[in-house]
Design a protein around this nucleic acid. Sequence first.
DNA 1: TAGGCCATCTGGTCCT
DNA 2: AGGACCAGATGGCCTA
Length: 301
Amino acid sequence: MKEEERRSAAYGMLGSLAEEHDSIEEEEEEEDDGEKPKRRGPKKKKMTKARLERFRARRVKANARERTRMHGLNDALDNLRRVMPCYSKTQKLSKIETLRLARNYIWALSEVLETGQTPEGKGFVEMLCKGLSQPTSNLVAGCLQLGPQSVLLEKHEEKSPICDSAISVHNFNYQSPGLPSPPYGHMETHLINLKPQVFKSLGESSFGSHPPDCSTPPYEGPLTPPLSISGNFSLKQDGSPDLDKSYSFMPHYPSASLSSGHVHSTPFQAGTPRYDVPIDMSYDSYPHHGIGAQLNTIFTD
DNA sequence: TAGGCCATCTGGTCCT
DNA sequence: AGGACCAGATGGCCTA
């Protein structure tokens, strides 16, 4: 059912419900008008036509607000999806998986900063995939194990610099040994994250300006460092993220590696002051460095 | 067909 | 009073 139809059907229901409500109240009033008036709590106001109209109008407005609110929430979720280690326009991560992956991503990057290791290899993928469903795990693992020959830098249909700066991988065919064909085996996958710029900026704290033309406004709040080891939250309360037990994590992936073409090997110096500046995790900073800069140059020609 | 995911409506609660 | 937020209910769509 289309949204409009759904809505008008619901409005019809609302109307009939209100009318039902109306008639019940009037019955009660008749009862109250009997010889032995019984007071059972405050007498309800009669649902006059005008009152009914106001009730409906209020409900309609509230519904619209609620829709808008949920759209805002979904937009925020979309923004979050775009800064996840893998992003596909055609195969979106579900809401819950997006949140899980975000949690793992933050946790994994925290590990990277803490240990000073480069974010590559099996361990990193494992961290990212913890608690995720098998399909999402396959997607993430697949995204992160691509060799350089698989990566095509090509002009994207979309105008969005987010997508422009994406590494588009078409017909990516990841086959994990021992696993059925991954559900995302043949699809258009955009690796836009684990961007060199991200890691570079982690070490060099260099940030760019906002990219134009994002369908939803980027996060404009305070640029709180996403990693705050000395801050108020503990990195690992029990050594691992609070994993949802509903999914069993099966580390079925080929030995994942990020080629240097994907991730700048700018090392994170252990002991380097890392939290003096906000770490910009928004895509705002991408187009001006590394691959993002190259793509930007290409696409703005 | 069952299950997962989603959008929407709705009523309750809290806050301004 | 009205808005924001929340959770439950409902029904549609999609996939295995």
